[in-house]
Design a binder for these strands. Structure first.
Lengths: 223, 223
DNA sequence: TTAATAGTGTCTATTAGACACTATCAG
DNA sequence: CTGATAGTGTCTAATAGACACTATTAA
């Protein structure tokens, strides 16, 4: 029972909100296998780099976005036969990004775009990426409940209404504006007021930045 | 940028309660590297088996316990140099076991035992296993809050007091017996009464089995 | 003014936590 | 009886959710 020979890859589930819909970054594969099909950005890990570094590198190479994007490990997938090229284990990462412009396809990718997660269900994804996307969305949904990560789906400065739109998009249900406002402004460490305001047809709204608090107590429930 | 050559291993953080203390299953390495040092049970994944199957196989081979043990993925570790034999990624699993007898050391392990997690901090563990154990304990602590997994650390039939002892051992703080009793017996799907009772010096206590409910709402808070 | 969005106040049913109290055993 | 552990009742402060109400802008 000696050491086994695997290829190790990273794959990235990067989510954002666009047009009030939760979207996932996908690339169109430029080479075999699954050439032309949509897939998660990702690729082979070098033997001298850490997993999360490989994830950042691949994201930059394939889509030219997400410089400072926070990535958290989602899980590993190693079912035999999941890659026709041979034994491969992939380590999946989850990233939540503020709405950005259209991604740029990099090397080894014929295209890159933000696809609505409802479309993703229907489309054929390469490898076992449909499963990985589903796991990523599940994780994102529950993370919003008990962490302040929802704010990372907003631009650096945002209003409570924008933040609420994020929750509504991710959970797929409406949230009471009044109660949400109170919960979120009173949760210690969640929001840092900037003092500035924006206006958008109604009364001007306070602008906030992300606070430091990661763990959210009490949680914002969705049930 | 072709496929990279890695060895892939699995490592297991198996926790139990013994003598009111949270304990972690460790084996004494029978071969290099780190021969003689304590380490997590685990080993190389074969190219034709799934990750979780490899974890179950290694656990059986090295310690002869945990036939039906539930394992959940904890995370993957691939920092370059973490294994002196070469590029290696390990996928760590977390298992929670009812108190069992002393484990039997199997092939490739000179010894196996349940070590108190407070001892583990001090002792030198092979590879990056100290970090993996710490991550496993963190995960177990938070899992007890919002899932019914605490019951898997009890024997098949158990009293509320036994279950409470589990929470106290894992969280390292006392829990009010009255309020705990109410919370846990009223949480839907958490416990299934058997009708039988045990007695242990005081009023006889109801015996329960684990219920089906995985998600626990509301959570049992520890703050 | 009206329309729109931001933000506050208030009421009610539920809950967490503290802890007094009752119940059922061994000896 | 006493001592021990199991389990229930009750009180209080805090909370979630519903929703009426006020505030500040554009047109």
């Amino acid at each position: 029972m000696g050491p086994s020979a695997f290829a190790v890859t990273v794959d990235l589930v990067v989510l954002t909100i666009h047009d009030r819909a939760l979207r996932c970054l996908l690339v169109q594969r430029g080479s075999e296998p699954f050439q032309g099909q949509w897939a998660l950005p990702g690729g082979f890990v070098e033997t001298d780099e850490d997993l999360v570094d490989a994830a950042h590198r691949e994201l930059a190479e394939e889509t030219a976005i997400g410089e400072g994007l926070h990535l958290e490990q989602l899980g590993s997938y190693g079912t035999p036969g999941r890659d026709p090229r041979g034994p491969t284990v992939t380590v999946a990462f989850l990233g939540l990004a503020a709405s950005l412009g259209d991604p740029v396809a990099g090397s080894d990718a014929a295209g890159a775009s933000w696809r609505s997660v409802s479309d993703v269900d229907r489309g054929q994804l390469a490898f076992d990426h449909a499963r990985i996307v589903a796991d990523g969305i599940d994780r994102a949904r529950s993370k919003l409940e008990y962490t302040s990560l929802g704010a990372t789906l907003c631009p650096p400065e945002f209003t409570v209404a924008q933040l609420r739109a994020v929750y509504e998009a991710v959970w797929g249900r409406p949230v009471d504006p009044r109660n949400f406002h109170r919960k979120v402004t009173q949760a210690p460490g969640f929001l840092r007021p900037t003092g500035r305001t924006t206006t958008d047809g109604g009364r001007p709204a306070q602008l906030y930045r992300r606070g430091e608090s990661a763990r959210l107590n009490p949680p914002i429930t969705r049930a």
